[in-house]
Design a protein around this nucleic acid. Sequence first.
DNA 1: CGCGGGTTTGATGATGCTCAAGCCCGGTGG
DNA 2: CCACCGGGCTTGAGCATCATCAAACCCGCG
Lengths: 194, 194
Amino acid sequence: MHDTLIAYINNALGKTLSEKDEHLLESVFKPKKLRKHQYMLQEGEVCRFAGFIVRGACKQYTVDKSGKENIIGLFIEHWWVGDRESFMTGTPSPYNIEAVEDVEVLLAGREDFLNTLSRQPFINEMMNVLTEKHSFHLIKRVHAAHTLTAEERYHDLHKKYPEFFQRFPQHIIASYLGMTKETLSRIRAGSGKK
Amino acid sequence: MHDTLIAYINNALGKTLSEKDEHLLESVFKPKKLRKHQYMLQEGEVCRFAGFIVRGACKQYTVDKSGKENIIGLFIEHWWVGDRESFMTGTPSPYNIEAVEDVEVLLAGREDFLNTLSRQPFINEMMNVLTEKHSFHLIKRVHAAHTLTAEERYHDLHKKYPEFFQRFPQHIIASYLGMTKETLSRIRAGSGKK
DNA sequence: CGCGGGTTTGATGATGCTCAAGCCCGGTGG
DNA sequence: CCACCGGGCTTGAGCATCATCAAACCCGCG
């Protein structure tokens, strides 16, 4: 299982990790399996892990007073998962993270991460690059939410992450895009016949 | 002028910079004045600076085909300004950044920044913390755009950055919040009399 | 005084939401 | 093997929120 993570990091850094570094990763990241519908993180808890998905798919969401799920993030294999803010600051997370398929993850606990991993320059560097990329991505989502129509947002996602449409049921994608499942359904029906 | 920046960094890092570090900052950050309506960055250019605002206020926006401005960011003194993605990757920016009041900024050029500043651990550390905070903030904006009504978004902003309402005309704030100036005006009228 | 930027107010309309019903399809149990 | 069930998807009708367009207003400034 750790091979996937090591390959990922080698690729991200554009170099090959030493045996020592590999062993460090193996000692810190514990494998865990989750079945579909199992929670990785529940609203109100502090997020005590940084997770790397080896297999499967997850959703991150809030639930409003009327019980409606609001998907804020979707994650598949080779993505990092967790609530970074809660993890770093130790404050309770407002989000739920749940497996949408059976999942295998590698989890690094808070203490291991802060005491061991974040002392490693190579990990730190990678995390910083990822955080930066993530923030670029988020700015675009804010801008998209303000300027694009439901249909345009759908097309953008379809172009950027076509695999999502194989992996997640439509009502989940709709919520991630900030629209209802009915609206997404109508968009798909319409855009086929034009 | 550099005092402001040095004080800001001392405060961010929770320590006092050495004379040497201070001199480094003074040599790298060049002061510049902009008058109201002047551009700091124009759509299509590569962003060649990282800027720290000493005095004044700026807006960051795109313009759609019909000519409407879409405000994506607002900045006042003691904030960093620029298009980080364009700056880091060297790709043309889709954004305009413009002074909304007369502005004094400290600018670090791309070369200085990448060759000199980013070699300094203290700067790097600070930047990473800032990027991280920024991404926390952006996630909330995405979530807000998807889940909150225009009125709720207004109240949130009013609570979080009351000073914006003194500094920016209403139509700019409206666009930043993803609504029209008319809608914002009506919200303000209504929320007073309830 | 008159001009111009910013704000307000009103009337109308589009986009996308809600609620409700029906459909499709794969899985389970009789 | 078929009937039934349930989750997800679709379709339709009515409606709310917010955008658009147009006009008037306010006020500081030349």
